[in-house]
Design a protein around this nucleic acid. Structure first.
Lengths: 200, 200
DNA sequence: CCTACCGATCGGTAGG
DNA sequence: CCTACCGATCGGTAGG
């Protein structure tokens, strides 16, 4: 039987993923070299190849973990909503807040997901895209429960994508630690869903 | 005095920009090689360098023309609104429709703008980013006129970026020629601004 | 306007 | 025999 991995092995992989996400977000997957990532980790390229077989393996593990984490958020929100007896609107609003808080912490991973999924080989790309579709489906489900009259079959996709549009590109303009927090922005998104641009 | 450019020179540059935009959108700026672009144009890499000094010069001309065109759309919409005597809400709605119709035609250029501006040198990048800021400012101005009570100073930016979020990433999910047109989607965006997710 | 190349750097791997 | 690494360099390809 193979000797077990060092206790620090998993921790080191997570460090690599954090640094790689930064490099990918700043330079893009193709422009970021293994040497760049190694430098960011304070190690050598050869050491990097001890932990991951290839640059693409780093990208896949990064996106795999991140998208799995997003699905966990959906499940946790459903559990919390049931336990606290939230109604359908409050459940959707909790989901929006939960995702925006996550996005504030995961900006670099999120950029990699949006920009670099295309650089995976087809089979791995499909795994990530399927997971993204599952997240979209969850939001559609929450929206349909919260706003059943508006969420007709023909409107389900465009209205879901409108909500994703409001949430998914906050990293392009909203700075963590600025005057408006991601939590504040979540409340603005929820208000706009509730009554559009009408006055308060 | 230098010999004038061939009458077809400008046309050939536009073809190059179209093909380059496709390559950049599909593969990303760094991954798309000059050979890829040459092949897409049905020409050689050497010929490409007759029309543009560098790969970056292609990217800049592409983004320069595209962002100038977006500002032209703003000006034309203001002119049309004044000529037709549209009120402030109708003017904003016309702007939204105008932009979404443009986005349907400019999907590859739009992807290049969103993903590849970072690969320009600082001085050229600033030209493009300033132009993007001008577009954002125009939308803020239209929104403030249409919804003055809601668009308080602290809310101007988040509400503007919410609208951009709804509009600017349609290329990720809305296919030109599908069941829902970009014009249909514009109406959905306008309805959501007008009354949120309330029933019709 | 093409073929033939360049300096450099890429992702990945050798022996120890 | 495994892992955890190192300095050096591989074959190929990028933009020009």
């Amino acid at each position: 039987m193979a000797r077990p991995k060092s206790a620090s092995h998993e921790f080191k992989r997570e460090t690599i993923l954090d640094m790689a996400a930064q490099c990918f977000a700043q330079q893009g997957y193709t422009a970021a070299s293994m040497n760049d990532i190694a430098r960011a980790c304070g190690t050598s390229k050869a050491r990097l190849y001890h932990y991951y077989d290839s640059k693409e393996a780093i990208l896949f593990d990064l996106l795999d973990r991140y998208t799995q984490g997003l699905l966990v958020l959906v499940g946790e929100t459903e559990a919390v909503a049931q336990r606290q007896g939230l109604d359908d609107k409050a459940s959707l609003h909790a989901l929006i807040r939960r995702f925006l808080v996550e996005y504030e912490q995961s900006a670099t991973r999120h950029v990699a997901l949006l920009n670099d999924t295309q650089h995976l080989a087809a089979s791995q790309r499909d795994v990530i895209l399927d997971r993204q579709r599952d997240v979209v489906s969850a939001f559609t489900r929450f929206l349909q429960r919260a706003y059943p009259e508006r969420m007709s079959a023909s409107r389900a996709t465009p209205l879901t994508m409108m909500l994703f549009g409001m949430m998914n590109w906050t990293f392009t303009w909203l700075k963590s630690g600025g005057a408006m927090s991601y939590a504040d922005f979540a409340d603005e998104v929820i208000q706009t869903l509730e009554r559009g641009m009408q006055a308060t």
